[in-house]
Design a binder for these strands. Structure first.
Length: 178
DNA sequence: CCCTGATTCGC
DNA sequence: GCGAATCAGG
C-alpha cells in the first residue's frame, strides 16, 4: 500500500481535523499508526504540540466516531426468546435470529480502532469499499461499512482482522494455575 | 495498561 | 521514502 496522492490528501485532511494517528490509520486502511505518524513528519505537517499533548483534542476528535453507528453487536441473541424488544419486530425477524443463533455475541476487540463507517448501501459498494454488513438487515438502519478496503480485500483493515470476537470465546476466567 | 505523538534507523 | 521499534509522556 503506497502513498498515493489521494491517500496523502486524506491523511492531511484527517490530521488537520484532529484525528489521532491510529484513527487515521484505520480510515486509510493498510497502514499502521506508525506509518501515519512517519508520513506526517515527512510531509512536515504541523505536529501536535507535545506528545500525547492535549488528549482533549483527541477525545473531541473521537467523538464523531463514537456517534457513528458502532458496528454494533452484530450478531444475535440465542434462540432464547427475544428479550423485551420493540415488537414491531416481525415473525420473520425472529425466524432469522433463530437460524443464526449460535449463542454468540460479537463485540469489537477492545484494542482495535474502529473505522468510521461510511454507511453505504448495497448499491453503493465498489471493489474498494468494505463490504462488512452492519446492523440488522431487516431494518432501515442496515448498511455496509464502506471504508476503504486495502489490497483486494473485501473488507477494511479493521474488519479483515476479524476484530469481532465472540464474547464467550474470550479469555477463560480462571484456568487456574497452582 | 490503555492511549498519544516523536524519534531512530535499517531497509 | 518508508515504517517497525522504541521512546517519552498523559
Amino acid at each position: 500500500m503506497n502513498w498515493t496522492d489521494e491517500r496523502v490528501e486524506k491523511l492531511k485532511r484527517l490530521w488537520s481535523e484532529g484525528l489521532s494517528a491510529s484513527q487515521i490509520a484505520a480510515q486509510l486502511g493498510g497502514v499502521s499508526r506508525n506509518a501515519v505518524i512517519g508520513k506526517v513528519h515527512r510531509l512536515n505537517l504541523p505536529g501536535r504540540a507535545k506528545a500525547g499533548g492535549s488528549i482533549a483534542t483527541n477525545r473531541a476528535a473521537k467523538r464523531p466516531a463514537a456517534a457513528a453507528p458502532r458496528p454494533q453487536t452484530f450478531a444475535a441473541r440465542p434462540a432464547t426468546r427475544p428479550v423485551a424488544r420493540p415488537v414491531g419486530a416481525t415473525a420473520l425477524k425472529e425466524e432469522a435470529e433463530f437460524e443464526i443463533s449460535q449463542e454468540l455475541v460479537y463485540r469489537p476487540a477492545s484494542n482495535v480502532v474502529l473505522p468510521i463507517s461510511r454507511k453505504l448501501a448495497l448499491t453503493e459498494l465498489t471493489e474498494r469499499t468494505c463490504k462488512w454488513p452492519v446492523g440488522d438487515p431487516l431494518t432501515d438502519e442496515f448498511h455496509f461499512c464502506g471504508c476503504e478496503s486495502p489490497d483486494n480485500s473485501p473488507y477494511c483493515t479493521y474488519h479483515a482482522k476479524l476484530a469481532y470476537q465472540p464474547v464467550n470465546e474470550r479469555r477463560r476466567p480462571s484456568a487456574a494455575r497452582g
